[in-house]
Write a protein that binds this DNA or RNA. Structure first.
Lengths: 221, 221, 221, 221
DNA sequence: TATGAATGAGCGTTCATTCAT
DNA sequence: AATGAATGAACGCTCATTCAT
């Protein structure tokens, strides 16, 4: 018998409300420059209430990062792994869709936050490497490998190629919350992401004599 | 005959030493999390001395950013504009060399710093847009345009293509000072930059029927 | 026929349970360093409930002090005043027994508590002077006076002698809750109290020429 | 060549000034109830300055306790050990003088402070046991033992006798800063201390048949 | 010029107290 | 009556900045 008073409902929603407020402020101003009272105010509660839910500002940061990115990454990876069809289709379709969703979600800000706070909180670096980079890069690497194996793409250094895909996309997310947040006209994310992917695909399929370039590192068979 | 005592030499070098110390710390820990006394200590002077050269921590930040990046950008742009030869050669050679130099220089850290502090100090955003982005993107855009005009590359949305080049390179710089500074093995910058450039070139030259892709936006003639 | 549900019984016992919890914590950690929630928890109720019984932490302190010591003092004084026999017997027997009972009771902690909180809450000083010191010293003074009048003891400064009796005993109580509570082996209270009393009695009866010492102040006739 | 600017002189005096301010307040109101800003104000400096000299309120407490009592104890013990003459003379003379000096010095307050803060800061208990109790009790025990060996006193349980001497004296110190600080007329310390000592001496010399009392524990030969 | 002692506004966190349920 | 979520004043401590030397 679950009786939810309005009080109880507020209480249940608090952690999420606080996380959202904290995320917005941490991303905008940085962790150190954000006062915990600001977070509380933005979540519509008093300073003390924040500490009923998170034991310290630092724990709040960790919760923000982990709760926001983990979901997005896990879901995206699952979707891509389940995809049926050619690697080319997957890259141009679901992969870009995923990145666009990430770009439009609060998770995009977490990239900015992580890049800057990693050095101060090694736990975040650990989290990023294991829970974001590893699975995210992994799923993209599998797609490329598949494409090579199926003859869609010429042989390539998959790890480098993954970076060629991911880095601009991560950068887009970061830019959204730096220059973009300063009122400067941002690049249109969808347009750029699809154009960039198209360009890379064109390169993956290109007829340049394999081995004729400067490409180094371990090639996929 | 001007006599420079060692003291005089120290004095003349102070501003630069302070800038270097500040840059290293701001990049590592963030602006807000760096104490001005730390900066002074690292530069080998006392807290008070710092304020003889820079009137506030914020002014120090601005000086750091402007003095570090401006040089790098101006020089790179000049080098590229003076380059004789095909666009392909320029992109694979001097352009990548330039980025590698930036990556290895203290300027790489300024990207990280700018991304995070732009929102807090709009003056920095202004600087970045006008003094870094505009000339940097500009010189790359001119190269690509040249390549298209000379028939080296198929027609393309130059602005998007510039982003495809620059974003991963900027991201490399940022990574160097975030994950890379946390002890995680970084991507080998030279290897990746050349591989990425190669891949993009392959795309620029690709034989895909123009207009057959998803590429949108204003095309270069 | 009054029916007391277990709940009703709990409710009636609440104030006492709260007082006991508060006493233990106030004595151990001090008033200021004890959180009111701790008191509530230790009494097995919620924070809010504490405030149904005591309007503030300060009132709780007063209640603790007054309820604990007053009983002990009143009873002890009554017992001693009713005592039949020589003063020597009374001092060695019922008086020491009383102090031992106090030492072993929670009241012993109140001495420590009072000594430290008196300055902050003058009401407590008032209470201590009037309800503890005055009757306690009084009953001991009457005993000594009796002893002198009956020729058991040589003439003495009764007020001083009372202090010679009471101060070590109070100190024992305080020590129990300071050094004793830190795990240091405490003096055996019974052994010391009887030895001390014995020693003093020996002094009271001593054959030193009266007036030959440094004893000053108003002598008992 | 020691040049002492007024600034330097202030700086050298600060630690002591802060210790004195802290001692007075900690003794009066208790450690937890004293705000660090109060301490600073009383020492005539700002909040921040306090932290230039002591890294935390807790460290300040330790410094207060150790700097104040240690000196007093060491000096007193030395004086007593050097004393020439009978034990009786030593007890009535230098010993009581010592205690009177302690009573009149700031060290008296430290007893109150220690008794209440020992439980919260075990380091203080350790200090008290090793640096105060042990040497203080020791020097008194040696005196009594000497008195017994020389035939001045009858055999006695020296440890208990030491407590009979010390406990009221410590209690006097504590009272000075509790009831005494509340405006209640205090016992005259000199009068009481000499009277008490006289009374005990009378007991030590007393003709009661040895072994006829309740005295227990290890007797001195 | 260079120093570093001093300041005090500001922030993270706690906790006595309140009050809707 | 009992709860415990919420509050906000208060406190410990920090650090950018100043200024006497």
């Amino acid at each position: 018998m679950t009786v939810h008073s309005s009080r109880q409902r507020r209480k249940d929603a608090r952690p999420q409300e606080l996380l959202e407020a904290a995320l917005a402020l941490f991303v905008e101003k940085g962790f150190a420059a954000t006062r915990s009272e600001e977070v509380a105010q933005r979540a519509g509660v008093s300073k003390g209430t924040l500490y009923l839910y998170y034991p310290s500002k630092e724990e709040l940061l960790k919760a923000v990062v982990q709760s926001t990115l983990a979901v997005e990454v896990a879901e995206g990876a699952r979707l891509l792994d389940e995809h049926q069809g050619t690697a080319t289709e997957a890259l141009l379709g679901p992969l870009v869709d995923w990145w666009i969703r990430v770009y439009n979600s609060p998770a995009s800000g977490v990239f900015k936050l992580l890049l800057t706070e990693m050095c101060n909180f090694p736990e975040l670096a650990e989290f990023y490497a294991q829970e974001v980079l590893e699975p995210g890069m992994g799923v993209m690497a599998r797609l490329l490998l598949q494409g090579v194996e199926r003859g869609e793409f010429r042989p390539m250094d998959v790890e480098m190629a993954v970076h060629s895909i991911a880095m601009p996309f991560v950068m887009m997310c970061v830019h959204k919350h730096s220059l973009g947040a300063c009122g400067f006209k941002d690049i249109q994310p969808e347009v750029f992401m699809r154009a960039h992917m198209q360009l890379l695909l064109s390169g993956f399929q290109g007829l340049l004599p394999p081995g004729g370039g400067h490409v180094a590192g371990n090639k996929a068979t």
